[in-house]
């Protein structure tokens, strides 16, 4: 019932939005949301904040660019029904590898290691020309035509992004109820106990990262079609932080909040020009992040549900005197 309430207006959205709103706001939010979902999935169910999600997304994006039509003359053209699964697979593998590297680290240690991985990948793409074409990267990456329908069409890309987002959320909710998903949450709650039961914690951690790689990869593929280019800047600190900010705004412990965060972020990004100097967008987004961290560390979703709870039970007062 509830999903339909949200889904029907979203399906009808193209009827009311013009191309600018549909592409620049709606589609972009969905794509960013899918990438941020890969982060909030890890944060919620494994308890690890990863800064390497842009890397996983970038690996999928670079794969599409390398094996698809591009205007820089690098790579091999493969049909989309090979390049898309290949891109997803490489994103999954990269996610698994990153999980393997970070498997013994939790909390801030995991942040440091995944950030180091992400930034190292950024510098690697800048240095390497044979695979990544250095800092210029790939341009002219065109989304394929599938069954006569061009995914470059704003409506088609929007519907595909919406479908992917719904599928991603459904996958997450199914995955976390599976035995493997439950083991992942057990590792989050008490890694020592899982070890004591004779179950390796490596497998669930690697699986969680690999699954987040699948989500990030899906977002990365959509993103490279949306942007029609990819370069080292697509995997640099900017996107790493953007994904983090979106997840934090939405609430790191609320997977679906990633989409709320994405809408807020995209609206800010799109209309900040009217508020402040376009050049100072980073200061604005930095201040927004700082405010969220100070005022609402649980994110907007948490803030909203606290409000609802308070409205429903006005008689409950704070008891603590200290």
């Amino acid at each position: 019932m509830r999903p339909a309430l949200i889904l029907i207006p979203l399906l009808a959205l193209p009827l009311v939005l013009n191309d600018f709103w549909l592409t620049q706001v709606a589609t972009r939010s969905l794509i960013l949301g899918i990438m941020a979902l890969s982060l909030s999935f890890l944060a919620t169910y494994l308890g690890v904040v990863s800064f390497a999600q842009a890397t996983m997304a970038g690996i999928a994006g670079y794969t599409i660019a390398y094996f698809g039509p591009n205007s820089v003359g690098i790579g091999v053209q493969l049909p989309f029904w090979i390049s898309i699964p290949l891109a997803l697979m490489l994103a999954v593998v990269s996610g698994g590898l990153i999980g393997l590297i970070a498997r013994r680290s939790r909390g801030i240690y995991a942040i440091m290691i995944t950030l180091a991985i992400g930034v190292a990948f950024f510098y690697f793409t800048r240095q390497n020309y044979t695979l990544f074409n250095g800092w210029t990267g790939f341009s002219g990456v065109r989304a394929p035509e599938i069954g006569g329908l061009s995914l470059r069409d704003p409506l088609a890309l929007y519907l595909l992004s919406l479908g992917t987002a719904v599928l991603a959320l459904a996958l997450v909710s199914g995955f976390v109820r599976s035995p493997l998903g439950l083991t992942i949450q057990a590792v989050r709650d008490a890694p020592g106990r899982v070890l004591a039961l004779g179950i390796s914690v490596t497998t669930p951690i690697v699986a969680a990262f690999a699954f987040s790689g699948l989500l990030a990869g899906a977002g990365g593929i959509l993103n490279v079609w949306y942007q029609e280019r990819i370069s080292s800047f697509s995997v640099g600190l900017g996107p790493i932080i953007d994904i983090l900010i979106v997840a934090v705004i939405g609430g790191l412990r609320h997977p679906a909040g990633a989409f709320v965060g994405a809408v807020v972020f995209v609206l800010l990004d799109t209309f900040a020009v009217d508020l402040i100097d376009r050049e100072r967008f980073n200061t604005l987004i930095g201040v927004v992040l700082l405010l969220i961290v100070i005022v609402a560390p649980g994110g907007l979703q948490q803030l909203a549900s606290d409000w609802v709870a308070r409205l429903r039970r006005p008689e409950v007062k704070e008891k603590s005197t200290v």
């Binding site: 932080i241 201040v287 992040l289 961290v293």
Partner: peptide, 9 residues
Amino acid sequence: LASIAISII
């Protein structure tokens, strides 16, 4: 997270 925000600003 806060120190990231500060570094961006």
